[in-house]
Design a protein around this nucleic acid. Structure first.
Lengths: 113, 113
DNA sequence: AGTAAAACCAACCAAAAGGTATGTACCCTA
DNA sequence: TAGGGTACATACCTTTTGGTTGGTTTTACT
């Protein structure tokens, strides 16, 4: 078992979190689950109309892989897939409110200028 | 019909925060001020050796612009510049710890696989 | 005169992220 | 037979982000 030591910068837990939280769409997707237990692919598409299908797919796949979302596939035709937050995913929700607060303070600033 | 107002997506306060928190270096820079009132440009360079000068300059300029950092220039030769957290900047610090916690949970996961 | 020091800037390039367009599977209904 | 619903995949392109290299400024020291 080769222990190729990644640089500190790559194993840093803050960086890991930024992978989950960063990017244009991930938090927006996660936020849709506030008040919704489960959401289907098509529902998410309607809730976030600006997102492209490629991005939605890509991010849903990633968020499932890192255990933020749980993916439940119903073997039906037409297909039916439900996504829901995992326990870990629920821990991301508080960030959204905090980031919104911070963001509002940033906005006030700009308006003054 | 077509108004020229910014899309909701661009004025969203969460997005604004992600600008401040996102990217490869901003949080790492902000984090250096935990336990240090003021840091000079050169000190930051030593504290974060992997960062390029371009990025350090760019991010310091940005963080000053959005009022996360305060920049104090001493009109000396050779130049002397000190950066410190603003009140707003201090509000970013708690995120770092929270993100580290979340990141550790993400790591545990991967190790299990 | 040559060099060093600190804090930058700008030009150019590479890599990553994101967008657009199109295609796939399968069954059902008209 | 054609078209629609659902959840994707793939190829290609553009935009954004980050890295590399090489300046610039002014003074003091050697």
């Amino acid at each position: 078992m080769e222990k190729k030591e990644k640089k500190l910068i790559d194993t840093c837990p803050v960086r890991k979190s930024l992978d989950v939280i960063g990017g244009k769409w991930k938090l927006l997707i996660i936020g849709q689950f506030f008040g919704a237990d489960m959401l289907r692919y098509g529902e998410l598409k309607k809730l976030i109309p600006e997102i492209s299908e490629k991005m939605l797919n890509q991010e849903l796949k990633y968020l499932s892989k890192v255990n933020i979302l749980h993916k439940k596939v119903y073997p039906e035709i037409p297909p039916k897939v439900e996504y829901s937050l995992t326990d870990l995913g629920r821990q991301v929700i508080p960030f959204i409110g905090m980031l919104a607060d911070l963001g509002n303070k940033l906005e006030e600033l700009e308006e003054k200028v």
